[in-house]
Design a protein around this nucleic acid. Structure first.
Lengths: 235, 235
DNA sequence: CGATGCGTTGATAACTTTCAAATTTAGTGG
DNA sequence: CCACTAAATTTGAAAGTTATCAACGCATCG
């Protein structure tokens, strides 16, 4: 089930130190809710995972809620034909694993080395019984996730250029320092997120660079040079 | 963006089983959770709409929850470039309008003449305060909707043939008498739901007919002749 | 009837994928 | 730290898929 969790559990001193201060991660994208975040910090255990490590798999029991403290996590589903569709990328501050079903419908693994806060859902549910606010915040979390997925649907019916432009703008909101984006994920990951091939993503980025909309100094670093143009593509 | 709440009925077997054991209103048969359905029936007002009538528009306050009693409703969003993306089709028993935001992110209108049960969300929320079961059922509704939208994402990254095959199988579960599907929506609606053009939908249906997977006696009536083949396409 | 809207079919163009190869980057062992 | 190998990314050419533009059939309705 969660072999990694037991194996990689951090010493109590580490957890305590981190939990006492409960600092907002610098890159937090606002996908959490304050008091819920605090509850999780108090109730949860922090786990460390190496790069490319599975956190949970499809069809495993969904007994925990996860919050990224450091690093990047992706959720995905492997289709029958072997292709992989990425459900989402989760950055520090983001919560994932909340699927409202007994079993996970997606798998989750780390893209980079990562620290993740883990809370038993049953504990949260018990808390929600006593404090209505917690229940409302879980609800708000779900609502946000639903809107996020619905946005993706609008994205997936558009052209490759529109998808890539939208992706860059989304990431800019989440991880950008000024106009420079440091991407934690590979071209393959981006392609699987956008429903394109890696070649099309690469070509589209090259075209955007030729059009002076962006700069790509290294493959993992992208600088937005013309946001209005990207916004127009984003539609 | 896409509001479609629990657009799906339960599998036919469940519907049948539930109807046998519970005296539900004739057309509001158990497409959702029983007690919630009953509450809505008791609290709500039934509205009648002619074909092609708007029920609510994007950006209007989302103060009500809707349940289709008779007819078919679609939700949609008009993109900046004028294209229209359909969020979902709602058949008798389906609930829509639950968007977890102050304002609707989609519009809803009728595809056929329709009767719709309307309940004030504030009334439901008040009820949920006193009865935890109601809150849980609203929650379950959301969960189902989230899974439905995620399914849709998997659909939209596939080929035209896969999308059409999946659409037919989905509709077969929802409206089929045996293997004959009576479609309430136009080719244009189907195209906008699947993110394709009307010509591609039409050609794909013709191809499926040539391949003896389906029959199309009239444009609104489709008979499934080879479900295993469709299932293989559906992936 | 003749107009109108919907659906189908055809021809062509545009876009994306596939297959292949070149290039750059990253990782590893010496 | 360098050299070497493997992996990731980019680029090119060709094939495949879907969209666009256009024409036609068919049914409905005034």
């Amino acid at each position: 089930m969660f072999p990694q969790i037991a194996a990689r559990n951090q010493p109590a001193s580490n957890r305590t130190a981190r939990n006492v201060t409960s600092p907002a991660p610098p890159l937090a994208s606002g996908a959490d809710v304050d008091s819920l975040a605090q509850r999780i910090a108090l109730m949860g255990a922090t786990m460390s995972y190496a790069r490319d490590t599975e956190i949970f798999g499809e069809n495993e029991p969904a007994d925990y809620l996860y919050k990224v403290v450091k690093g990047t996590v992706r959720t995905y589903k492997v289709l029958k034909d072997g292709r992989r569709q990425i459900g989402g990328f989760y950055l520090p501050g983001d919560i994932f694993g909340l699927e409202f079903a007994d079993k996970h419908t997606l798998s989750a693994d780390t893209i980079t080395d990562a620290r993740v806060l883990v809370v038993k859902l049953s504990a949260l549910a018990a808390l929600a019984e006593r404090e209505a606010a917690i229940g409302r915040e879980l609800h708000a979390l779900t609502a946000r996730e639903l809107r996020r997925v619905q946005e993706r649907i609008l994205l997936l019916v558009k052209s490759a250029q529109e998808r890539v432009a939208s992706f860059l703008l989304e990431m800019a909101e989440r991880v950008a320092t000024a106009d420079a984006i440091e991407l934690p994920m590979s071209r393959q990951d981006i392609a699987e997120y956008l429903g394109l091939t890696i070649e099309t993503v690469s070509r589209t980025l090259s075209a955007l660079e030729s059009a002076a909309a962006i700069e790509v100094p290294t493959s993992r670093r992208i600088v937005l040079r013309n946001r209005p143009a990207l916004n127009r593509m984003h539609g």
